[in-house]
């Protein structure tokens, strides 16, 4: 088995169709009102049960969660595999970090199980929607510290936002399973973010350059995971930024503010791309 595993080779059965961020962003249709500015008022795009397309949107997001959990499982498994146990230098990781990654693999496996059951409950078929492999890409770095930043802080941070949104959805709809399951998964994700933050700090304790590089990488991944502003504090974003749970997970106010700013920029950039595409297409 190879030491590092490329995203293109992720193994799936025939039901799954994969895509990537570039393909996803080349779709210039938009559900966002282009006339609206970030400060203007109007109907919210938040994923709540009172949206006319609430169930469809929730199903699509649940499928996204399921494939995201599959990739998170694969990412954690690969990090447990790809690096020898050592002192953290020269491509090694501490033995205890390997153990934590194995634990995370189990947690993510349970999350896949939960997501599959919830998808079934909501009437979604496995593979019904395309799978964006951007999450696993964050787990492909040859530097384990970048993986901690990209996966445990950026990806799992996104999971905190998504699960919080879905938990609220379940709460408002009075769905007996959705809120229950999302709350359990949320607890795991907060643990994973804390775990990532702790290890990032410990492994780079005497290497400020490496830490800075990892945090830069996290910012890049965080912006990608904004999905063109689909996640953000603006009401135009279907998924909110879960400040309280992010704080529980160890994000500082400044860090959350930075992510909120990137989300806002990503939304405005996306709107500009869509506007230009529509002008070009003359529709």
């Amino acid at each position: 088995m190879r030491q590092f595993f490329p995203v293109e080779d992720l193994a799936r059965d025939d039901r799954f169709v994969q895509t990537n961020m570039a393909e996803r962003m080349s779709d210039t249709r938009s559900a966002v009102d282009l006339q609206r500015t970030a400060k203007s008022r109007g109907a919210s795009n938040r994923l709540t049960p009172d949206r006319h397309d609430a169930s469809d949107a929730a199903r699509s997001l649940m499928h996204g969660i399921m494939v995201g959990e599959i990739q998170a499982l694969e990412g954690a498994g690969r990090t447990a595999h790809d690096f020898d146990a050592g002192d953290g230098s020269e491509g090694t990781i501490p033995f205890e970090l390997k153990l934590d990654m194995a634990r995370q693999a189990w947690d993510e496996a349970r999350h896949v199980e939960i997501s599959v059951k919830l998808s079934d409950w909501m009437g979604t078929e496995i593979g019904q929607f395309q799978e964006n492999t951007v999450l696993f890409e964050a787990a492909c770095s040859n530097d384990p510290v970048l993986r901690l930043a990209g996966v445990n802080r950026a990806l799992e941070g996104l999971a905190i936002d998504v699960f919080t949104q879905m938990k609220e959805f379940g709460q408002l709809a009075d769905d007996p399973f959705l809120e229950f399951c999302e709350d359990w998964m949320l607890a795991d994700e907060v643990t994973h973010v804390k775990m990532g933050s702790d290890w990032l700090r410990r492994v780079t304790e005497n290497d400020p350059d490496r830490r800075a590089k990892a945090l830069d990488f996290q910012r890049v991944v965080d912006k990608l995971f904004s999905f063109g502003g689909a996640r953000g504090e603006s009401e135009e974003s279907p998924i909110g930024l879960a400040r309280r749970f992010r704080e529980l997970a160890g994000f500082t106010d400044d860090e959350v503010d930075t992510i909120a700013g990137m989300d806002h920029d990503a939304l405005e950039e996306r709107k500009e791309v869509v506007r230009l595409a529509r002008e070009t297409a003359d529709v």
Partner: peptide, 24 residues
């Protein structure tokens, strides 16, 4: 852990992730 990404069968993928932790 390494094999999780290499098996296409979803049920087996999840089992391997679970067993990975037990042996860790």
């Amino acid at each position: 852990g390494g094999w999780v990404a290499t098996v296409p069968e979803l049920d087996i993928k999840m089992r391997l992730g679970t067993h990975c932790y037990r042996h860790a």
